[in-house]
Amino acid sequence: MTLIKDRKEKIGLHVMKNENWKKPVYETNGLNVWYGTSHALKNIDLTINEKEVTAIIGPSGCGKSTYLKTLNRMVETARDVHISGNVTFMGNAILGKAMPVELLRSKVGMVFQKPNPFPKSIYENVAFGPRIHGIRNKVMLDVIVEDSLRKAALWDEVKDRLHKSAYGLSGGQQQRLCIARCLAIDPEVILMDEPTSALDPVSTHKVEELIATIKNDVTIAIVTHNMQQASRISDRTAFFLNGEIVECDRTSTLFSTPEDSRTNDYINGRFG
């Protein structure tokens, strides 16, 4: 107990010291996640601030994806998951029966590792979210689709083939379409689970540029195994190891002067 409290204070102090002007979107306190008997996340305390890019790094199996999926409760789709602790989204508790997942996810978009557009047209892919949230008006949908595709820097590439299948796009374009699809529901947060790991360097660069522009409008939490990417695009970085947070700091600080020797070893490629 004292240990959790200590860490809480440490991170709390930290927030006050550096980012007291930022509003927290997600606050996680003492989060534990078990898959069956394996303890995937141990007493996680982490704050994700509004309109910032928070990168979550760490070696495979450290729980970084599990943490991200807890934020929109996709983690519960796995079998035999047990969660304890407290996660709030814009001040509201989200775990358990506190909030319907559908409501939470209508404010929190997610981009996955592998681009997963629907086998529908480009237009229908982007219009999917607004449609399921009840927007039927054709003019309104047209506006949302164009706006989202423009924000995702895809409009010029696809405006002549909006009604063609999304499967005709390249992998990178598909991933940006998935980001556009998220933007169409006007989310507060977009969670990205290694969004560029299936892409070539040029497409990766485009997605990174896109993240840099949309972070003015939305908060982004991104899991990445690519430390260069984390240092390029994020404002803050959390380093996970064996289900615990080792360190969380401003990205520039964490990469230049890490406090923990394990962070130092990881970012310098000594393990993982």
């Binding site: 559908e102 409501l103 999917f128």
Partner: peptide, 27 residues
């Protein structure tokens, strides 16, 4: 029907019924 399409749909806040009618059935 690939699971990643279900994930995409649930991730947008779709209910099970919406996912079934709009994603799973068409495919």
């Amino acid at each position: 029907v690939p699971d990643n399409l279900r994930e995409a749909s649930y991730g947008m806040g779709a209910t099970k019924w919406q996912t079934i009618t709009q994603v799973i059935m068409p495919s």
